[in-house]
């Protein structure tokens, strides 16, 4: 069972700009990402939108496959800045490790 955290987007504001809700999940980012892997980074952004905080922590290793190359941000039609969202999630996960 997945727990939904309605305040998750608010919690993430400490780690990056609040742009995840701009995303309409078109998938341009996932199509252009050199990883070409399991809907990355679109799936992670969807998790933020629905408040699936635990899902992100469970799958956090995936975040470090991101090369921070910036192609997703450069091509996003909504200027949702997926590259920075992923970087913000890395910061969130690192802070969680260090708190635990």
């Amino acid at each position: 069972m997945t727990t939904i955290n309605l305040d998750f987007a608010e919690e993430l504001k400490e780690y990056s700009d609040d742009t995840a809700l701009e995303c309409f999940n078109c998938g341009t980012c996932a199509a252009i990402c050199p990883l070409v892997h399991d809907n990355f980074p679109r799936r992670m952004i969807r998790y933020i939108q629905v408040g699936a905080r635990e899902k992100i922590l469970e799958n956090s290793d995936e975040l470090w496959r991101c090369l921070h190359c910036g192609l997703c941000t450069h091509t996003c039609p909504r200027e949702a800045d997926p590259g920075e969202i992923i970087l913000g999630l890395k910061r969130f996960v690192v802070a969680n490790w260090r708190r635990s």
Binding site: P34, L35, R65, L67, H68, C69, L71, H74
Partner: peptide, 25 residues
């Protein structure tokens, strides 16, 4: 230019195999 492809370098420490895969592309 602005649409350059990544060489895969940043993944070297976390996953050398992923880095090689991207470099190959």
């Amino acid at each position: 230019g602005e649409f350059t492809s990544c060489c895969g370098g940043p993944a070297e420490s976390i996953s050398p195999s992923l880095s090689n895969e991207i470099m190959g592309k």
